[in-house]
Every structure is written in structure tokens, then in C-alpha cells.
Design a protein around this nucleic acid. Structure first.
Lengths: 336, 336
DNA sequence: TTGAAAGCGCTACCAT
DNA sequence: ATGGTAGCGCTTTCAA
């Protein structure tokens, strides 16, 4: 590999001058600069980022840990992060934590080992204590899609509880009394909070009406939705509406309901969560909850960048985002 | 940040010994080893990967450039790559090239600057010359989803032309004579090859029947499919079948056809490409071409890793994969 | 088994 | 405007 010394030798200058050219620094004559540039070109030279990082004691790229690389949620997050990075001409290091504790931990450690100053973490498996610990040691670390009280000023999160409430209130408004909810297994935070929101909303109404609730758990995917619905059906309990953890599951649910001869929404209504692009291209178009995750990702990235540079960012106590009900065609009104 | 020296001092040993412990090397007494480990723990020490990389003159992680981070294709690729990496306990650096030439170039350069030895590149925008140049300078660089003759032993690719042929043959077998194809704009390779395959298959049959072909271009997304179909309809030419560049587009096409009052497949048939998970959860279930991209990604990763270590891998002249027709419900038979 | 010290490629300070 | 050079954190001989 070509090094700065090779360039210096070939150009008949000192490494210092080459370094100045690399960094577009001042104090180099135009002629020298041109010559050096030309030689770098000829020799196909790329500065060694690793050396730059240890020498300058910083790594201006941004490190990201996503829970996975396949869900629409991750895709939208990645897009938001990229937007900011591209705009500021900063490189991103994506790492994924495959939903389990060990690999999430490893993914974060890798970021630390690379000495990223700015980090955006989407952790679905690690416990609060671990995350608080990491956050306290790394000022540029920001959590996305998760709220932890002790470090709330470093959290960019969705009010999942409110999301659950929106789902429950709407489905009850439409007259449903027998409701199934499909939660995500292995997801530490969001699922439980939404469920809490749902139950809370139901409890509030139970004064005038009796609402029956069935709860099952499944993998947060299309496949998981299919399986969950089979289980629900096998249980033999009546339900007229299904609330799912995300749109992927909802699509699986609808598909499997159809396969069993049920019509959606005539026989059974479905509400998803996320408002991903697929939501409106299936039949029936999915009623769901909008999750402004790209917006959140943008904010998280800007925050991480700002904190890592100790710049005076308009810091807020915390960064809460609000879910929103999107009414389409997958819910039937039961009362007139 | 804690360094190796801090640990050495705290443990009352030399940095050399600490280094040995970090790398699980031999030549350290058990007692010393334990002591050092304990102190590393206490001080929350993580070795600086950048320093390791310049000192050891290697970077054993694998660098990846994906064309984007949002398409199902990329998601499946990422999964394949991750499988290999996880298995071998190697870290991955994902970078994305947002479909345009400049940022793809930049993404690759970033990988070079980090001195990754193993690289998997999915380039959709860069020209062959540039890629050949990179490949020749970097023995561990492998191209995925693209075939370039000059460096075919470093290419893991799908036979797109055959894919096109499969689509065309099937749709003609079903009796269609007025066919629209929606190509992807801005994609250098695959789209043109598939189209070639389609035209080739049609030419072969034109001896006994006349086939009409309309061709339009659009963005390779759900949205692009919607727009393309509107354009097709506006052109006023008759067509009974639409062949799309990918499943996302096909879903957009179906959705928009329905919006215009056409039934699929009764009025118009649709064939997608990719066989992504969504393909079978829409109505009607999508007839499409299977693209074994995850398998390809696994192969590409193994190849890159092997080449970067100059290990004796069972190298092949080239790595060609074969697309396959998946018949579902989105095509109507026009002859009895 | 342990330590001293010479690099790795680069930056930044101090001279010139 | 330029060059010399001391580090940055780590690995790896070579000696002890």
C-alpha cells in the first residue's frame, strides 16, 4: 500500500507537506500542492483512515447499531441517518445486532473499539443498566426508539403507550368488544408499552361495556403474524379485531385469515403499526399507526453529532415523538 | 480513553504483556494474565481497533458497499453477508451508495481508506472500467450481482438474461401477444440484460406469431411501478401483460391497475422479479422470478474473505447463479 | 515468562 | 512556504 512517505519521496517533499495537502490545509504553495496532488493520483493513493484516527485522536464518522437490517423500520431509520450524513459529508458505519443481547453488545463494543465519537443505537435487547452505563461513558451516544428515564436527554423515542391507546380507542369506537393483540416476542420495550396503552384504554371504558382481550406473542415479522393468527384461531375464542405489533405482522395476519376463509374487514378487522409503505398496497389497505421513524432518525443523528462535538445544540430535556392513527380500510364498524 | 499503557501501569507490567493478553497470545503467566484481565475490566478498556489496524497492517473486518439500504434485495444481501460474518466472528462495515455514481465511488474509497482487505461491492452505477481498476488493485474485492468479463472470477452474479427469457417464454406460453415491460432507470446492468433476454425470446417466436412490445422506464420502487403504469395507460396502446424489473414495482403496478378499475389477472397479467417475501402476501399472489440473492451474498462473502487471505479457496472461473420462474396467481392464460 | 524498543501511517508543533 | 520530528495506541521482534 502506498503511504504518505512514498508520496513525499516521489514528490521530493516532506510528509508534512503531503499531510497538509491531504487535509486541504494552508501553508503549501500552489505549485507544490499541484505536484503532490498529481502524484497521489498517479500512485492511486488513499490516506489510511486508521492512522488518521489514532493520530488525530478522533473519528469523525458516525457509528450506528441497528437492531436488524431487514425490517422496514430499520430501512427507514437508515435512510434518515444517511440523509444527515450525506448532507454533512460524514461517513456512516452500520452494524447490526440481530435482535439478541450478545450480538447487540458486541455491535456496540465494536463501535467503541473504533473510537467513534458519535453513535446512534437502536437497542431492542439490552437492559437499561447496560445502556445507561454506555451512555455515561460516551457523551456522543444517542438511543433511538427507546426511552430510559435516567438518560432521557439522550433518547429519541416514540410514545408507544399512546400508540397503544390510539389503537384501542379506535377499535372500541368502532364497536368491537372482542379484541386479540399480537405482541412481539424478544423486544424489550416498545411492545410492552403499547400493550400497556391498550389495556389502559380498555380499562377506562370497562365501566360501560365489557371488553374481552386475548394476547399472544410472536416474532415481529410477516411469518410471525401468520403463525400467531393460527394460534388464535386454534384457541377457539371469539375475536372480531386483531391489533398487531407492526405492519409486517398485520400483513401476515390478513393473509392467513384469508387462507382460513375469513374476510377482512367484514369478518375480522386488523390494525397494524408503523405505516410502512406496504401498508397501503395490500388489500384491504391497512389501517395503522404512523411511526415517524425517519424523522426520529434524523434528529438522533444530529443530536449524536452535536453531543460528540460538544457543540451548543438546542438540547431538549428529551425527544418524544407522537404516533398517529391512519384510518384506511381494514377495520369494520360494528355499530351504526 | 483508557489505553494499553494505562492498563500496563495499573497492572505493573509492560504494554507488551497487555497486548499479549488482548490477543489471547501465549507467553504470559496465568497470574499475570488474570490480573491484567481484571484491570481491563475494571477500567472498562476496549482496544483501539484503529491502532491495531495500522500496527498489524491489516483489517480483518469485511467492508461492504450496498447500492441502498431500503430495498428487499439489499436486505437479503445483508442477511447473507451477516450469516457468514457471524459464523466466522468477523465484523462488517456496511456502507451504502445511494444508487448514484459519485456516492458509490465514495463508498468504495472509504473502504479502501479503512484498509479493508475483504470487500463485497454491489455497484449499480459505476462503469466497468472503474470497477476493473479497483478489482485489480485489491485482491480481496468481490462484485455481487454484476458480471464483468475481465474480472469474472471475482463476480458473483445472476444470469439476468435468462431471467428475462423465462418471463417472456412463460407469458407467451400463456397466450399473451401484447406485452409491456417496465425497466429500471439508472441501473447499469441487470435491467438491460433482462430486457435483452425478453427481446431475444420474443424474436425467436415471432416466426409464427406477432408479439407487440411496449417498453417504459421508471424508478425501481413501488412508487415507480405506479407511475409507469399510469404512463402506459396514458399511451393508449393495448397490453394484456406487464413484466416488471422487480417485485416492488409489480406491487405498485397491481395497486394502480386496480385503482383504474382493471382486474389482475383477469384483465391484465403481471410478472415480477425477485421473489421477495411480499410477493406472496399480496392479492393476487405474484408470479415472479426467484433471485437467490442471499445464497449469492454468502458465496461472495466467503470468496472475498478467502481471496483477502490468499487462502486456497476452491476458486471457480466465475460464479453464475440461475433465476427460476415461480408461478402463482397473477397471470391469466389467454388460450385454452 | 517478561520487558524494551522499533516501527505502523499519519498529524501537528516547532524550526527554518 | 517547507521540513524535521515527536507522538497517537498498538504489535512484534529481540534480549534478558
Amino acid at each position: 500500500m502506498t503511504t504518505i512517505k512514498d508520496i513525499a519521496k516521489a514528490a521530493g517533499v516532506s510528509p508534512a507537506s503531503v499531510s497538509r495537502v491531504i487535509n486541504n490545509g494552508p501553508k503549501v504553495g500552489q505549485k507544490t500542492r499541484d505536484k503532490i496532488k498529481q502524484i497521489m493520483d498517479e500512485l492511486g493513493y488513499y490516506p489510511n483512515t486508521n492512522a488518521q484516527a489514532i493520530s488525530a485522536k478522533k473519528n469523525i464518522s458516525i457509528g450506528v447499531v441497528l437492531a436488524d437490517l431487514i425490517s422496514p423500520l430499520s430501512a427507514e431509520m437508515a435512510q434518515g441517518i444517511e440523509k444527515v450524513a450525506t448532507e454533512k459529508d460524514i461517513q456512516i458505519f452500520f452494524n447490526s445486532g440481530a435482535f439478541d443481547k450478545t450480538s447487540e453488545l458486541k455491535a456496540i463494543e465494536t463501535l467503541l473499539e473504533h473510537r467513534y465519537q458519535a453513535m446512534v443505537i437502536h437497542s431492542k435487547a439490552l437492559d437499561e443498566k447496560t445502556l445507561i452505563n454506555f451512555a455515561n461513558k460516551n457523551p456522543g451516544l444517542v438511543l433511538i426508539n427507546r426511552y430510559i428515564k435516567e438518560i432521557e436527554d439522550r433518547c429519541v423515542w416514540l410514545d408507544d403507550k399512546l400508540g397503544g391507546t390510539l389503537m384501542a380507542d379506535y377499535i372500541m369506537d368502532e364497536g368491537h368488544e372482542n379484541i386479540a393483540i399480537i405482541d412481539a416476542e424478544g423486544v424489550i420495550n416498545n411492545s410492552a408499552l403499547r400493550c400497556e396503552g391498550i389495556k389502559h384504554a380498555i380499562a377506562k371504558r370497562n365501566t360501560d361495556r365489557t371488553i374481552n382481550l386475548i394476547e399472544v406473542f410472536a416474532n415481529a415479522s410477516y411469518k410471525g403474524g401468520e403463525i400467531a393468527v393460527q394460534n388464535l384461531l386454534a384457541m377457539g375464542q371469539k375475536f372480531t379485531a386483531v391489533l398487531t405489533y407492526n405492519d409486517d405482522m398485520a400483513i401476515g395476519v390478513i393473509s392467513m385469515l384469508k387462507a382460513h376463509g375469513y374476510r377482512v374487514p367484514e369478518d375480522i378487522s386488523v390494525i397494524g403499526f408503523g405505516n410502512f409503505i406496504l401498508a397501503k398496497c395490500i388489500t384491504p389497505k391497512l389501517t395503522t399507526i404512523n411511526n415517524p421513524i425517519e424523522e426520529m432518525a434524523i434528529k438522533a443523528t444530529e443530536l449524536a453529532l452535536a453531543l460528540s462535538q460538544q457543540s451548543k445544540f438546542e438540547t431538549q430535556p428529551t425527544y418524544r415523538y407522537v404516533p398517529e392513527l391512519i384510518v384506511r380500510k381494514s377495520v369494520k364498524q360494528l355499530i351504526s
